[in-house]
């Protein structure tokens, strides 16, 4: 039986135009909505699969504001058995603070009788892109860590995980307990069922408060890349433009005339 903790982060949607708040300290998500990253959707799916295969339970956790209950309930709706909200002023949190905050919950739950054999996270947050929370968490918990993982399964006391490497699909076999950071691509996240959604609405969420003095992220400010005025040259419309396309490809040197 393997209990799995999966960590997610409420982030602005990435389908629309990015705007910044006036103080340049955050992305203004008013018009784009909130979501979790594709990596984390896959992490949730893997957590549920691993827990189900071993008769354990998947618990979802986030560190953030109470608005993140929405993302926790989405994870409950697809099959997580429990949820933990660590309320904190994450605006001033950096990767060290987030990792320490998660580690505190893992240790507290262990004292209370629940050991998480596997902690899974997304490989990098869709907004801050720090690429380090999983690694820092693993050091705090003194566990081995794998990043860039697309699939994993439990075999006895070992997690067998696979991820793309420079020479092919790399296979890791690491003793539990372990930390795994997941990349999109190995599994397809499931959709919630109606009963799943109903159940998620009523599911209790353990709410904790983290009032640590944060180490911080070093953020000075956010800025947007300079807007390039459109310089597109329209070669034509429809099939008639084909000769102009090929002329261009020849000019660019990718077609030997």
């Amino acid at each position: 039986m393997a209990n799995v903790l999966v960590c997610i982060k409420r982030v602005p949607g990435a389908s629309g135009q990015i705007l910044l708040t006036e103080d340049e300290q955050a992305v203004d998500a008013r018009h784009v909505g909130w979501t979790v990253s594709p990596h984390e959707e896959c992490a949730v799916e893997l957590a549920i699969q691993v827990a189900a295969a071993t008769g354990g339970a998947a618990t979802v956790l986030t560190v953030g504001s109470s608005d993140a209950l929405e993302q926790l309930r989405d994870a409950l709706a697809v099959g997580c058995a429990g949820a933990v909200l660590v309320e904190a002023d994450t605006q001033h949190f950096g990767p060290v603070d987030v990792a320490e905050s998660i580690a505190d919950v893992v240790r507290a739950h262990e004292v209370a009788g629940t050991t998480y054999d596997l902690v899974v996270l997304g490989n990098d947050a869709a907004d801050t892109g720090d690429f380090q929370v999983g690694v820092r968490l693993a050091y705090a918990l003194e566990r081995p860590v794998l990043t860039g993982i697309s699939t994993c399964e439990i075999d006895g006391d070992t997690v067998v995980a696979r991820g793309d490497g420079p020479d092919g699909l790399e296979v890791f076999e690491v003793p539990l307990p372990a930390v795994v950071a997941v990349m999109e691509g190995g599994v397809s996240p499931r959709y919630p069922s109606i009963p799943g959604r109903m159940k998620a609405k009523r599911a209790p969420v353990e709410t904790l408060t983290d009032s640590r003095k944060p180490v911080g992220s070093g953020r000075v400010r956010l800025k947007l890349p300079p807007e390039q005025p459109s310089q597109v040259e329209i070669l034509g419309a429809g099939a008639d433009a084909a000769p102009a396309v090929v002329d261009l490809l020849v000019k660019l040197g990718v077609v030997a005339k």
């Binding site: 390039q228 099939a239 433009a241 084909a242 396309v245 490809l249």
Partner: peptide, 25 residues
Amino acid sequence: TKAHYAVIGDLHEIVPAVNEELRAR
């Protein structure tokens, strides 16, 4: 708008025409 060059239209018409032109050349 971000591209350097563009052709406006349905790829299912344009791409076969480009292929034909490429094969010819």
